[in-house]
Amino acid sequence: MVRLTIDNKKIKVEEGTTLLETAQKLNIEIPTLCHHQALKPYGACRVCLVEVIKGSRLGLVASCTYPAEEGLVARTETERVKRARRLSIELLLARCPTSEKVREVALELGVKKVRFKEEKEECILCGLCVRVCEEAIAKSAISFINRGADREVTTPFKIGSLACIGCGACVYLCPTGAIKIEDVRKCRRLDFWNTKLELKKCKVCGKHFVPLVELDYLKDRIKSFEEMELPEEALEVCPKCRKRILSEKAGEFIFGEKYP
C-alpha cells in the first residue's frame, strides 16, 4: 500500500493504482478521452493531466498512466493543469469541430472558441478502437499508420479487412462517433474500415443479424458450450428471438407449462 495526497485529500491505495483511479476513489473528477478501464493505460489525449510534486520534481503527468507513489502530492485544479487541459481540448476541437463529445469536454473545461485552423476530421486518434481490437478482441484488424501530423487509423492497405469480424467493439468505444456500423440486408457495413461482411440468417425469424466471421469467432472463443449449458445453435438465433425464447422459457419455469 502507498499513501499519497490528491487535492489535499489523503488516501491509501494499492501499489500499481494509477492517479486517475485514485482520484476516482476520492470522487475527484478528471476528464479523459483515450482511457477505458478495460484497456491498458495509454496516455495520449493529455486531457487528464495533473500536476505532481515529488521531492524536487514538479511537473505535469497523465493521470491515467502515472502510478500512485508513496508520499506523492498531486493537484488537479491548478492554473497550470487547466491551461494544459484547455489547450489540448482546443487542439482536438480544431481537428474535429463537429464532434459532440469533444465539444462537451471543451465546454466543461471552459473552451468555447477555437483559435486555430480548423480541419474536418472525425477521429481524434485516441486509439481506443485500435487497442480494443488488439487487447480485448485479439484481432488487430486495424492499426495506426504513418506518423506525426499524417497519423491515422485504418485497415491494412486501406482496403476491406480480412481480420475484422464486425463485432463493433470499436464503434462502441469510439468517443467521437467517427466509426459507424450498419446492417443493410445481408451485409454488415463498417465504412470507416472499408469493410463489408456477409451476415447469417436467424434460425427463427430469418433476419440477417450476425457476420459469419463473428459467429465463427464466437464459437471458437466459447470453448465449452456444454459447460455453459448452452446449445451451440443458440448463437445462430438473433438476440431478439433469443430474448423471446428465453423469456418464454423463464415463464414456463415460473408459471408452469401453460404460460403464457
Binding site: E134, K139, S140, A141, I142, S143, F144, I145, N146, R147, T155, P156, F157, S161, L162, A163
Partner: peptide, 10 residues
C-alpha cells in the same frame, strides 16, 4: 497481425 506489419511499414 497484418495491421501491425503495415503500421510498421508506414
Amino acid at each position: 497481425p497484418l495491421s501491425q506489419v503495415y503500421s510498421l511499414a508506414t
